[in-house]
Write a protein that binds this DNA or RNA. Structure first.
Lengths: 246, 246
DNA sequence: GTGGGTGGTAGACAAGTGTCTACACGAGCC
DNA sequence: GGCTCGTGTAGACACTTGTCTACCACCCAC
C-alpha cells in the first residue's frame, strides 16, 4: 500500500480524537483527587467523560494503556518547558559574554553562577508545579504505584528528565569540573528530590516558601559536595586541614 | 471430638486478635504484589486471609483504618532496628576511644569517620530492605498513594525516621559542624533518597551494587556539601581560590 | 451510491462488591 | 446458673463492574 497522504488534515481525524481526549482528561481529573489509575473503573471513567462505557475499548485495551498515553503526553509536554526554564534561569544570571570563563580561571564566580542559576530554576520549577499540579501528582503517584508497566514508563521519564538536566548543566558549563557519571548521578538525585518535594509543595500551600528554600539549599549542597569530592577533593581537604598535622 | 456444625471448633480456641493479624498479613501480601491498599476489596482480603468477609468489620471500619494499623506497626518495627544499624556502623569504624576527637582538632579524620559510617550504614540499610521488601514497598507506595489519611501518616513516619537520623548523627558526633536546622534538612533528604532508592534496589536485583554505591556517594556528597557550606564555606572557597586573583 | 473503516451507542450477562441483620460459641464476671 | 462481650460465621440484598455482541452514523475513496 502506497502511503497516500492527503495534503490537508482530515476534519474527522481531529474531531474524532475527541473521545480519547475526554477519557484522558477524565482519568486525570479522577486520579488527581483521590485515586490511582489502576483503581479506576472504566464505567466510572466513561461516566465522568460523559461517554458510553464501551467507548473506552475503541481507544484503549487496558487501564495501563490509558495510563501510558497520559504519561507519554505529559512527558512530551513537560520536558521542553523544563529545559527552557533552566536556560532562562542560566541566562538571567550569566549573560553570554561571561559564559566562557572556565572553572580554573575563576572557580568562585562559576560556583556563584551555578548557585544563582539553581535558585532561579528551582523557583521557576515550583511555579510550574503549581500551575500543573495534576500532572505531577499523577506522575509521582504512579511512579511508585501498582502497575509495573506504568512504573517502568515513569522511571524512563524520570531518567529522561535527569538526562536533560545533566545535558543542560553541561552545555551551560555550570559545573565543568564534574565527570559525566557524577553529573548524571547528581542530576538523578536532584530530579528525584524535586519531584518528591513538589508533592509537599502542592499539598502544603502555606509551606511553599520553606519548601522552595529547602530545595534550593539541597541542590546547592549537592553541587558543592560533588564539586569538592570529584573536582578538588584532596586539595580542599588538605587546605582545610592546613594547621593540623595528619 | 465431635464435629460441630460450626466450621473449625479447635481453631477458635486460640486467643483473640488472630483475625486482625491474618487480615493485616493478607493485606501486606496482596499489596506488595500489585495493588495499593485503597484498591483492595474486603472480600478479596478476607478470602486471602481465610476468613469471612464480615470479620473485617470486627476490627476495622475502613480500609484506611487497616492501612493505618499496618503503617503504625511497621513504623514501630523499623525505627529501632534502623537506629541500631547506625550505631553498629558508627562503632565499627570508630571505637569509643576516638569518639571525642573534635572536628576542629582533626577535620579529616572526622570526615573520614563520617564517610565510613555512612557507607556501612547504607550497606546495612539495603540488607535490611532486601529482608523486608514488602514493608518498604507498601510504605513508599502509600506515601504518594490515593488515601490522604495514609499519606499523612507516612509523612509523619518519614519525619520520625529523619529525626532519628539527625539525632543519631548528633549523638555520635559525626557532623558536629552542622547546625540543627541544616542537619535536619540533610537527614530528611537522605531519608527520602534512601526510601526511593530502596524501590530500585528491590526491583532491580542485578543493579544492587550500583544502587548501593550511588546511595553512598549521594550521602557523602550531601554531608560534604553541607559541611562546606555551613561550616567552613568561606574559608574553603577562599582557600580554593588561593592561587588565582579574584 | 456503495463499501468499509472509524468512533460511538444500547442492552445484556455473569461475576463480584459493600454492607445489613441474624446467629454461634467460648470467656469472664456476677 | 444466667449475662454480656468479643470474635467469627452465614445468608441475603441491591448495586456496580468488565466485557460481549449487535447496531448506528458519519466520512472517505472508489
Amino acid at each position: 500500500m502506497t502511503a497516500r497522504k492527503s495534503a490537508k488534515p482530515s476534519l474527522t481525524r481531529t474531531v474524532a480524537a475527541q473521545g480519547k481526549r475526554l477519557l484522558m482528561d477524565a482519568a486525570l481529573k479522577l486520579t488527581a483527587q483521590t485515586r490511582s489509575i489502576s483503581a479506576l473503573g472504566l464505567r466510572e471513567l466513561a461516566r465522568e467523560a460523559g461517554l458510553n462505557p464501551n467507548t473506552f475499548y475503541r481507544h484503549f485495551k487496558d487501564l495501563d494503556e490509558l495510563g501510558l498515553s497520559i504519561i507519554e503526553e505529559m512527558s512530551a509536554q513537560l520536558r521542553q518547558p523544563l529545559r527552557d526554564l533552566r536556560r532562562r534561569a542560566a541566562e538571567s544570571v550569566a549573560p553570554p559574554e561571561l559564559s566562557n570563563i572556565g572553572w580554573e580561571d575563576n572557580p568562585i564566580l562559576n560556583m556563584q553562577k551555578a548557585t544563582l542559576a539553581t535558585q532561579e530554576t528551582v523557583k521557576l520549577f515550583f511555579d510550574y508545579v503549581a500551575q500543573n499540579p495534576n500532572a505531577f501528582i499523577l506522575g509521582v503517584r504512579e511512579l511508585h504505584g501498582a502497575s509495573p508497566l506504568l512504573r517502568q514508563a515513569l522511571r524512563q521519564v524520570m531518567a529522561d528528565f535527569a538526562n536533560d538536566m545533566a545535558d543542560d548543566i553541561k552545555q551551560l558549563r555550570l559545573l565543568p569540573m564534574l565527570d559525566d557519571a557524577t553529573l548524571h548521578e547528581v542530576a538523578s538525585a536532584i530530579s528525584r528530590e524535586m519531584f518528591q518535594l513538589s508533592m509537599d509543595y502542592i499539598e502544603q500551600p502555606e509551606q511553599r516558601a520553606a519548601i522552595s528554600a529547602q530545595a534550593e539549599a539541597l541542590v546547592v549542597m549537592l553541587f558543592t559536595g560533588a564539586a569538592v569530592l570529584k573536582g578538588h577533593g584532596q586539595l580542599l581537604l588538605r587546605a582545610l586541614a592546613g594547621g593540623t598535622p595528619a
